[in-house]
Write a protein that binds this DNA or RNA. Sequence first.
DNA 1: TTTTTATAGTTATATTTTTCACATATAATG
DNA 2: CATTATATGTGAAAAATATAACTATAAAAA
Lengths: 219, 219
Amino acid sequence: MKNYNVKKNTICPLRKSLRRILLYRGSLLRLQTLGVKRVYSYTLGKETGVSAEQVRKDFSVYRIKGNQRGGYHVDKLIADLESIFYHNGSQNIIIMGRGNIGSSLANYSNFIQRKINIVASFDIDPSKQRLRSEIPVYTLDRLGEVVKRFEVKTAIIAVPDIAAQEVCKQLVELGVEGIINFAPVILKVPSHIIINNVNLSDEIESVIYCVSQPGPLST
Amino acid sequence: MKNYNVKKNTICPLRKSLRRILLYRGSLLRLQTLGVKRVYSYTLGKETGVSAEQVRKDFSVYRIKGNQRGGYHVDKLIADLESIFYHNGSQNIIIMGRGNIGSSLANYSNFIQRKINIVASFDIDPSKQRLRSEIPVYTLDRLGEVVKRFEVKTAIIAVPDIAAQEVCKQLVELGVEGIINFAPVILKVPSHIIINNVNLSDEIESVIYCVSQPGPLST
DNA sequence: TTTTTATAGTTATATTTTTCACATATAATG
DNA sequence: CATTATATGTGAAAAATATAACTATAAAAA
């Protein structure tokens, strides 16, 4: 009577594989600037800390082909990989909150190379509008206008945790579908919304644990 | 002739489970300040976006017990969870690089609650020493002294990618064993070193992909 | 005190992800 | 132009992870 044909991993499939694709791309861009023309799954794996088999498997998932003796052409491979996530062209995103994290993201130069286009940031504190920054700072009353004008589908939440849920709600109501959340709260959202929680304290603590730990449950 | 008794997942086992333990703790701390005395696996799961079964399973891995009808006492549970990663007391860590990310981490108030103790930060630019910040800024010549005095075992690398490998090398030579790396480079380290790469661009791009993508390989 | 009931704890099952193994293709070589 | 060496591409096996199903237990109710 058991019937287990419900497909899981359904909201955003292949996420792990995709994360590695992003890694490969980063590595390839570096190799490209060094003038490297050709890579092998082994080379790329070593660069990114992934096994060669895993690299090939990931490519196979996305139907990316190489030459069965000569590896992969760097330029072509980058183009192939980017076609996976840039099919809609570059995306306009916004940053909610101009505190420490919000501002450091606003000034983060890496995004430009990646075609991540931060069009605006928001903060309840009007004095933040005077911040010297490439990215304009607005108060929340202009949120709807900006989201609409730039067709913003993705937003970064970098507001204090008490404010995060409310900001999130507003974003979702305006049609934002993807959120990168730096507040240490689990946001309640409709199921079609993609949330990526980034908790910097946890990132650090997980390393501290591994370092101070000889091995778990050493009973 | 096949012999597959080599245990994998060996450097830092149970990492995924541990990551969730950190999530639970965060949620519990919030519930604690709200005066909540008791939680159930179901409650905690809902708070953290994890299934109730998963919560119980994670606890079972770390031999954490509740009451078989009354759930878990919040205070006791927090203490139990923290005993997993705080058995060595609070850890002194340092931040390498006082650019955007380094500075925002240095000013990040969440660490205090978490017993993450940032004792110093470093930057090649001596003018950074004049930054107004709780965390002192030194040039690299004092690195050895600080690592030794504060018994630093974990460091955050937030320097430009070109400098990251060199900084990393120095840290490892001084006995640092755990690194949280914000530079978009894969660091070459001896195998006993724990590395956690955090790539903010990738965090954002992976969401952009999921949002703009109706479904993968829709051939 | 016994029964009921809700929830923890655990074992079994399913799913996902990674690794292995090898057939296959192709650039390089003589 | 045939041969060879070396990477790729992929189906199968294994490992890791998550989910579900079930059992035991303790609190509450009768």
